[in-house]
């Protein structure tokens, strides 16, 4: 379903009166004509797109083009001035902060610099969502042993089990990013948002991070939005998959079908399409982001 196919007038109603769509036809994320401005600056300018469960969106664009704001508005960290955002079919816009906690519990976020809490050790950082998210507390408050086990599993997933007792400041940038991924996926969310996961990292570490993102996506069929300025990241997302039996990343045509690219410029989505469409685009700005080695 695209934003244009929404029931007529539904956007005007608050979340409570919008009928819940059947799970299989409910888009995981839906932006409908979303605008956000800070004074004269348009951070998001009439942004519309939609993605289904298990799909991947790679958001490309220059610094300041609105990529991070796209992620922040998706989970209500910043509220748009107009338009509608739905997560799992539920309206995000217009909700109070406390009402958003349940929705956010189903979303994992990796912030640009990891967003780890400096005052907490790695184990406490990764355990934080398990211990603090209301939805998880209400449905099934995990025991101390269960929390420990899930934290270990999440850190083993990113191959950093040995850092449990360290503080974030003791880790390298790449390791902090990996711990950020562990914290984002420890609650097994249906949607994970990655904000520039490879920014400022060397190519080897960057590829390790993308491999972890592929692993999370393909092991649990997680819907993924990845903001990046590196075309290579999108290329890997669209052409590779994680093979659970070999534990390796391998080329896969199937990833092409579920991966679409968005290119943002000055708050607007100026391109949305598959990788071949991206490569075929004649727009000079889009072309800048559509070739290997571009940044």
């Amino acid at each position: 379903m695209t934003p244009n196919e929404l029931p007529a007038g539904s956007a005007a109603f608050p979340a409570a009166v919008i009928p819940r769509l059947p799970a299989e036809s409910t888009p995981t994320v839906q932006f409908q004509d979303v605008c956000l401005s800070f004074g004269e600056v348009h951070a998001l300018d009439h942004v519309s797109f939609s993605m289904n469960p298990g799909e991947t969106r790679v958001v490309l664009g220059a610094a300041g083009s609105g990529k991070t704001m796209l992620l922040k508005t998706a989970v209500g960290l910043v509220m748009p001035n107009s338009g509608h955002i739905r997560l799992f079919g539920e309206e995000v816009t217009g909700r109070k902060e406390a009402q958003l906690f349940d929705l956010r519990a189903r979303v994992g976020i990796l912030f640009q610099e990891g967003g780890l809490f400096d005052s907490l050790i790695i184990a406490e950082n990764v355990a934080y969502p398990l211990l603090n998210q209301h939805a998880i507390e209400q449905s099934h408050a995990p025991s101390e042993a269960e929390v420990k086990q899930r934290v270990r599993e999440a850190l083993r997933f990113v191959e950093l089990e040995h850092t449990l007792d360290k503080f974030p400041s003791e880790l390298s940038g790449g390791m902090r990013r990996r711990v950020g991924i562990a914290r984002a996926v420890v609650t097994a969310p249906a949607l994970v948002l990655y904000d520039s996961p490879t920014a400022g990292l060397d190519p080897i570490t960057a590829n390790t991070i993308i491999a972890l993102i592929l692993k999370e996506r393909d092991l649990r069929n997680t819907a993924t939005i990845m903001v990046t300025h590196r075309y290579q990241d999108g290329h890997l997302m669209a052409n590779f998959r994680y093979n659970p039996s070999s534990g390796e990343i391998e080329p896969a045509a199937s990833s092409q079908k579920t991966t679409r690219f968005l290119v943002m410029r000055e708050g607007r989505v100026i391109f949305e399409g598959s990788q071949p469409e991206l490569l075929a685009s004649t727009d000079p700005y889009v072309q800048k982001f559509a070739r290997p080695g571009s940044a």
Partner: peptide, 18 residues
């Protein structure tokens, strides 16, 4: 302020804490 600029406050909100 440091927590704000390093997105720790956003992370806190995203992880279910006011």
């Amino acid at each position: 302020g440091s927590m704000r600029v390093t997105e720790q406050i956003d992370a806190m909100r995203a992880l279910g804490t006011d």
